[in-house]
Design a binder for these strands. Structure first.
Lengths: 211, 211
DNA sequence: GTTTATTTTAAACGATCGTTTGAACTGAAG
DNA sequence: CTTCAGTTCAAACGATCGTTTAAAATAAAC
């Protein structure tokens, strides 16, 4: 951490500001002044604003997606060895839990989670494509495992249900940081694992719903 | 439509561009040139960019939310008259279907649906608050009806499940306009009512999931 | 200590933003 | 025809954007 200290500070500040105000509404001057760095240092260390957001996303998503992939493949292998289908709930847990775990792992980690939660809804292709590139293989694998878990459900139905589930997850992730929508009393969860324990049964029941 | 023709053209162009590129990434020059209007006409007719997006949202949301409210109140009244709880699926249908119906009602209506779907994920408070102001009473009413439909489920659980359901809905609404996430073959629905018929059982099963 | 390579800095670049201005145009009322 | 409110228009406002430049500062190598 001796030399590229500036780089880290920029990444941290960018992560927080992108999550709070969005990509287009955050200027490089906002970021560099928050990071106590010179304006030109962003273009020096990263090349461009787009390369910066790309690196902001990648440094967190890569390890998280690695864990997700490992867990999903383990579930797949265990089920095949046992000759019985995997559990849909376990598959979704493997997909979702790493995000919640990371969220609690560091004081500023929740900013990134909100950023990721918003990524799929980003109207601009820049952010969305960066996120898609990272998440697509995991989605594919998740879809595989879910297909094996629920072989009686047609692929097209499964596709859309997975789509709905992703909506629940991403909406939850970026809402855990902001103000509650309906009831002020219900909203603030100190420990987000409580939300995970509510989210998993919801998704599982939806996925397994009768046709 | 004789005099304020420009106002309509601006609203339509703004609706499409805000949905496609987002609020901050769409300039008034983009809008006025698409609407074949003068740059200053936005500030003349609306006052500001923020007042414009507000009117873009309101002119569609107001009638849709009126329908939703009427249907939800009718469900509530019918159930109370019959002395039996309402059906959760009917309540969600009353909430969701008007959006899908509107989406198919005009060739350009789908742009607005995408805009609304993104609104809750907007990092900027401007757009989100405009949308919240319109949607909050409907959310409250929906929560009421769902509470009566599922009285055995604790309020806090119900709150979060409704939260998850809203995530599914909004994600679906803004994704119906863009590229599919996973399978190219599954995605493009000509008639979005097919998606509604898949979405409702998913949400209902999730809401009614065992504790 | 001198010479390299790396990083930081202040200043400026051209472009675009939302908004404002004041004159030109419009069409119906007097 | 003249008057006048309503509308459109070209032009400019100051501010901010992402990026670039070239010099200054720092660290590393010899």
């Amino acid at each position: 951490m001796s030399k590229p200290d500036t780089k880290h500070r920029i990444l941290d500040a960018a992560e927080r500001l992108f999550a709070d105000k969005g990509y287009h509404n955050t200027s490089l001057r906002n970021i560099t002044s928050a990071a106590k760095a010179n304006l030109a240092s962003v273009n020096y260390h990263f090349g461009s604003k787009e390369a910066l957001i790309s690196e902001v996303m990648d440094r967190r998503l890569a390890p998280i997606n690695k864990i997700r992939t490992e867990r999903l493949k383990a579930i797949q292998q265990t089920a095949r060895d046992a000759g019985s289908p995997p559990l849909a709930e376990e598959a979704f847990c493997a997909f979702i839990e790493p995000m919640f775990t990371f969220r609690e792992s560091a004081p500023n980690a929740r900013h990134f989670i909100a950023l990721v939660g918003r990524s799929l809804a980003e109207p601009d292709g820049t952010v969305r494509n960066i996120f898609k590139k990272q998440i697509m293989p995991v989605f594919q694998l998740l879809f595989e495992v879910i297909s094996e878990a629920l072989p009686h459900i047609p692929e097209k139905v499964l596709y859309w249900r997975l789509h709905f589930a992703i909506g629940s997850v991403s909406h939850t992730m970026h809402c855990l940081c902001s103000k509650p929508m309906i009831h002020t009393e219900c909203a603030p969860p100190q420990d987000s694992t409580e939300v995970l324990r509510l989210l998993l049964p919801f998704i599982t029941a939806g996925m397994e719903a009768p046709l």
